[in-house]
Nucleic acid binder design. Structure first.
Lengths: 347, 347
DNA sequence: TTTTTTTGTGTGTTCGAGCACATTTTATCT
DNA sequence: AGATAAAATGTGCTCGAACACACAAAAAAA
């Protein structure tokens, strides 16, 4: 138990050489049945864990991993991802991994394609990317596949076999969480789901949240609530929202499906004397301010930092310690209010 | 950048031997100023990260770490800790650490003292423990200090210099989160904080939560709410609670400071036709059942698994990779409702 | 000037697993 | 039986950092 067995120990115990033990362990064949049995008998008796340290000493390759994500300058939502990547570098950089971050403009598909082409030319061992543009991502991932470059995705799920691994949230369930929170806040009246459509198309992801949101109230089947739905464009944002609110005097709660929740909060705070419950997404500075003020009641945390951190860490550990990469890793859907924000803002 | 520098590389670049480089790196002295400068010049130029793998190969010591926690058979709250410990074993066991779990009876201080005495006789390199009994824990930790055994604590914070490291929740803030949740659920009326006193004394920890709870409503300073406080003993639990509820017809919300929330739920569900909002602690099976049924509105997750996992992992990495152990690590205060429970139950 | 001490430098071995290669043993064929 | 092929087994080197030890050069003492 206290002893740390080595291949040599096993060889001595079995009365064979370490070469033979090695062949047994790796099923390399060229072992007589008698020797095989002798070694296996010992292996059954003791708990042999090959020393990971020695195992990797020989392999002095530097693995190269690229991370591709939207430029945080264009959308601050991605800001924490950078810090997640840096955490991995500081934790695992000494094991011989080279991590490069590549950014693309989330408003332009071309930027996404260009960045991928650039990465593919440099031929890294693996790529962790945000497949923001559905169609383009599919094509890009096939190219990676053909080049023998491993691909993991995070934040946005792509239903495709090319996507070997995904780290992120279950958006359907996330929508249900939002619904449940509104039910906690509002006893009866109109409840609206609001899509703030951003410049880039991530309609698929907003739809998933909507499905979950609606499914919750369907399951609830209560006469107290009346569901509404509304889309907001960046252009006529303010007037459109004001009109919507004016048209629905019984509006008691709003669920915003994107991180632009603060834009809605700005209006609600100004416009109405009577309280409308507001649930939205992501810990942007503006959102946090409204959360603390009380305009936003709950925020759902999508863990951008954690997503990048875990996705990258899994890739690194795959190369260094030969760990398996799970096909999908769904992160918990964190509910944030004004009181647990300080402790959650870190990641 | 792509090159992974070794000590040998640096030696060649500086025109000295690897022994000299080693002496410079470890400040072992016995290096002439000329040689020191030559080596440092190279070190400034390149980004040298000593290979952690090779570094530990030589050090083939098996570190022994004991984990001491209450027996999950006596209180299921601790059940997930075991799985957290096992995760560390499977993740880091191959690096040469021996982890032993020792259980004590949370209803008996003697059991705690006995278990510690047993651990101290076996002289491990470090101990991770739950300092459930304040006074006894202080004494015990001094003994560990004297024996040169590193101690980390989790779940319960002990205000003492002997506690080098703590992993757990900020209980004061946790009480504030509970208060905020009740405020979200209830618009006006009586709101009660309920202590279900368990057999063992953890009064200190319940008090912290209470302070936070009260501080929130003090800060709010709203005439809509009226705070109540009540203690429940295991013996006359049911009658006492029923009486309390009967005495306060305007009771609209209850905050239970322990994992025994389900006991309160049982009564609330039976007794009252009109809804009383209920916020409590921990993802016990019974609590989860009431959460899904709607009797419990929110549960605060104390992350028992994560606490044990992180506490142990930090100790292991301290020995294996010489990482610093933080003096305290406060885990996020997770809010759980019926919809995000499935994804959070895992840890 | 010679001997002793101090200080600086380089060399060689170790750790455990992996794998190439050498060597021994066993089986097959003339 | 002897030659040869095939299978089984053992040996020895590698990886990078750490450290003991040997040895050289310079400084101090005789």
């Amino acid at each position: 138990m206290l002893k740390k067995y080595t291949i040599r120990d096993i060889a001595n115990l079995a009365g064979v050489s370490k070469g033979t033990v090695d062949r047994v362990l790796h099923h390399r064949g060229k072992v007589s049945e008698t020797a095989l049995k002798k070694v296996n008998d010992i292996l059954d008796k003791i708990d042999f864990k090959p020393n990971l340290i020695a195992k990797n000493l020989k392999n002095n390759k530097v693995y190269r991993i690229c991370v591709l994500l939207p430029d945080p300058k264009k959308d601050v939502y991605w800001e924490p991802c950078i810090s997640g990547i840096n955490t991995v570098i500081s934790e695992l950089g000494a094991f011989g991994v080279n991590i490069e971050t590549v950014l693309f403009n989330p408003t332009q598909t071309k930027s996404f394609l260009d960045a991928n082409a650039q990465i593919q030319r440099s031929m890294p061992d693996a790529v962790l990317l945000v497949p923001l543009f559905f169609k383009e991502a599919l094509i890009v991932m096939e190219t990676y596949e053909a080049l023998g470059i491993k691909v993991s995705t995070f934040n946005n799920r792509i239903a495709s076999e090319a996507a070997k691994s995904f780290i992120g949230q279950d958006l359907f369930q996330s929508g249900r969480v939002g619904a449940k929170l509104l039910q906690s806040l509002v006893n009866e009246g109109d409840i609206a789901i609001l899509h703030v459509s951003e410049k880039y198309k991530n309609a698929v992801f907003m739809q998933e949240k909507e499905k979950g949101f609606i499914s919750f109230f369907n399951d609830l089947d209560s006469p107290n609530y009346n569901l509404l739905k509304h889309k907001l464009k960046d252009l006529d944002f303010e007037t459109s929202l004001k009109n919507f609110i004016a048209e629905h005097p019984h509006l008691k709660g709003i669920f915003v499906t994107t991180s632009k929740t603060h834009q809605v909060a700005t209006i609600i705070q100004k416009l109405t004397p009577k309280k409308i419950a507001l649930v939205g997404y992501d810990l942007l500075t503006e959102n946090i301010a409204y959360l603390k003020k009380g305009t936003i009641d709950f925020l759902i945390h999508q863990h951008p930092k954690q997503q990048a951190y875990l996705g990258l860490k899994l890739l690194v550990e795959h190369f260094i310690f030969e760990k398996e990469i799970p096909t999908q890793l769904l992160l918990p859907i964190d509910i944030i209010n004004s009181e647990n924000i300080t402790l959650s803002a870190r990641d």
